[in-house]
Computed example of a mutant assay.
Amino acid sequence: MPIGLAPSARSTFAVHTVDNAALEGAPLLELPFNTGVRIRGYSAINQPNCQVIVEDFMPGDEFDWTFTHDEFQYCISGEMEVEVFLPPLYSEVVRARITPGTVYTYPVGARKHVKVIGEQPFRHLCFCPPSPDYPFPTHASLTGQG
């Protein structure tokens, strides 16, 4: 583990094509602090500089989440309504409807309330810099390659 000014672990080049079949075969995971809400996803790339997760939120689900890091997301399919409560006092609230093709960001410390709209999962890419190393299965583990 690097200490002080010693070099930190470096990321390498990585490439991944979203695998819808692998995602649909991923296990449903209980979302902490949100009883009855389950999500599925897999870690597509996990480098020191960023973890990229392909993730589904299930139709009709509503939940809250607080970000411990900055996060960038891109909607692939499905729709959701989101309310984002911004730090430091959470009195500033931003509301948006997220649809396919939308890029959006959450700053560290933001709290969100999500409502998935429609009959299909809300599928999106999460870009989490630096990697929080969320414990999602890897693509290789889902496809028998690892």
Rank of each mutant, 00 (worst) to 15 (best):
M1I: 13
I3A: 11
L5I: 10
P7S: 08
A9Y: 01
R10N: 04
T12E: 05
H16W: 10
H16S: 13
N20H: 13
L23T: 05
L23R: 10
E24L: 11
G25R: 14
A26C: 06
P27C: 10
L28I: 04
L29R: 14
L31P: 01
N34P: 03
G36A: 06
G36F: 03
G36E: 02
V37T: 09
R38Q: 08
R38M: 02
R38T: 12
R38Y: 08
I39K: 03
I39G: 00
Y42K: 06
S43A: 12
A44L: 04
I45V: 14
Q47A: 08
Q47G: 04
Q47Y: 07
P48H: 10
P48Y: 09
N49S: 15
Q51F: 03
V52Y: 05
V52M: 09
V52P: 00
V52L: 08
I53A: 02
I53H: 01
V54K: 04
V54L: 09
E55H: 11
D56W: 02
M58G: 04
P59T: 14
D64E: 15
D64S: 15
F67E: 06
T68Y: 09
T68V: 12
D70L: 11
Q73T: 11
Q73P: 00
Y74I: 07
I76S: 01
I76D: 02
S77W: 06
G78A: 09
E79Q: 15
M80G: 07
E81I: 07
L86H: 13
P88R: 07
L89I: 12
S91K: 14
S91M: 11
R95P: 03
R95V: 12
A96W: 00
R97Y: 02
R97I: 12
R97T: 15
I98D: 00
I98Y: 02
I98E: 00
P100R: 08
G101E: 04
T102G: 01
T102A: 09
V103W: 06
Y104V: 08
Y106K: 01
G109Y: 05
A110S: 13
R111A: 06
V114F: 03
V114G: 00
V116G: 02
G118W: 08
F122T: 08
R123A: 05
R123G: 00
R123I: 10
H124P: 00
H124N: 06
L125E: 07
F127H: 06
F127T: 05
C128P: 00
P130N: 15
P130M: 13
S131E: 11
S131K: 13
D133T: 06
Y134C: 06
P135A: 07
F136P: 00
P137D: 13
T138L: 05
H139W: 08
H139E: 02
H139I: 02
S141F: 05
S141K: 12
G144D: 09
G144I: 12
